[in-house]
């Protein structure tokens, strides 16, 4: 049991480190990038020394790809691919700028309106990303606007920014290449440790259903706009997929437990 849990935890850490490395590169933070670069190497060495194998060749590519990308001054496409499920703030801001010039405060407000179920965007992240867009020639400063309040820098998308946005929007998102789901890991670990996976699945199901009721209430509330309905639908369908997996797994648990016990 212990080697499996330890190994799973190391893969989780390796994945996080890979993201840290890529983020550090994106921020031009050389010190943080060097520290993160060294860490995957240590993790990979530790993983190679373990007695057990978890999906060899399946879970490994992420830190490896991140390191390769670092060594070759990764391309934007590689960076996006490695982040997989992280939303691309720069492209979303470019999308919001597509309607016309805007300032950071307004972009932040419109982001939170358009993506109501997403993690709220921090003001600092908006301004940092706008500066990077300007640096990369994808946006440019378009004067200032005070509108009776404090003076604010206005930004607008450049032609190159429009092209970049169109390419990104048309790019097919890769289907998730492997399973790194916490619920899946907890069920497997619970079986390995002789816990109560069926009890865990019942409680997890109840938590999922509570969230699904909240989302259903949000999307059916009078006056819900299309963005709210679409984002609630997206979340509901993913929670529903989890639930169906949990239901099937609960039904299979007796067989599954017998298989693990016998191995």
């Amino acid at each position: 049991m212990a080697p499996w849990a330890e190994r799973l935890s190391r893969y989780g850490e390796a994945g996080e480190t890979a993201i840290t490395l890529l983020d550090a590169r994106a921020d031009d933070d050389a010190g943080a990038a060097r520290a993160a670069y060294r860490k995957p190497g240590r993790l990979r060495a530790a993983l190679g020394a373990g007695r057990v194998r978890v999906g060899e060749g399946v879970l490994d590519p992420s830190p490896k790809r991140a390191r390769t990308a670092h060594e070759s001054h990764y391309s934007l496409a590689t960076y996006i691919e490695c982040r997989v499920i992280r939303m691309s703030t720069r492209h979303i801001l470019l999308g919001l700028l597509a309607g016309g010039p805007s300032h950071g405060y307004d972009l932040k407000r419109r982001h939170d309106e358009r993506f109501p179920q997403a993690r709220p965007l921090a003001y600092g992240q908006v301004y940092t990303t706008l500066q990077r867009l300007v640096r990369d020639g994808l946006a440019e400063v378009d004067g200032t606007d005070s509108d009776g309040g404090p003076e604010r820098t206005m930004y607008r998308s450049t032609d190159e920014g429009s092209r970049e946005l169109a390419e990104w929007a048309a790019e097919i998102a890769p289907p998730a290449p492997f399973v790194t789901n916490e619920i899946f890991a907890k069920v497997v670990v619970s079986i390995l440790a002789g816990g109560d996976p069926a009890g865990y699945l019942r409680e997890q199901r109840a938590a999922h259903m509570r969230r699904m009721r909240e989302l259903t209430a949000v999307k059916t509330a009078v006056g819900s706009d299309l963005a709210t309905v679409l984002s609630a639908d997206y979340a509901l369908n993913h929670l529903d997929a989890d639930l169906r997996w949990m239901t099937t797994t609960a039904a299979r648990l007796i067989t599954l437990t017998a298989e693990v016990d016998a191995s």
């Binding site: 259903m209 699904m212 259903t216 509901l236 169906r244």
Partner: peptide
């Protein structure tokens, strides 16, 4: 269907 059940209290 869990998505239908989610309409319930």
């Amino acid at each position: 269907d869990a998505q239908v059940a989610a309409y319930a209290d």
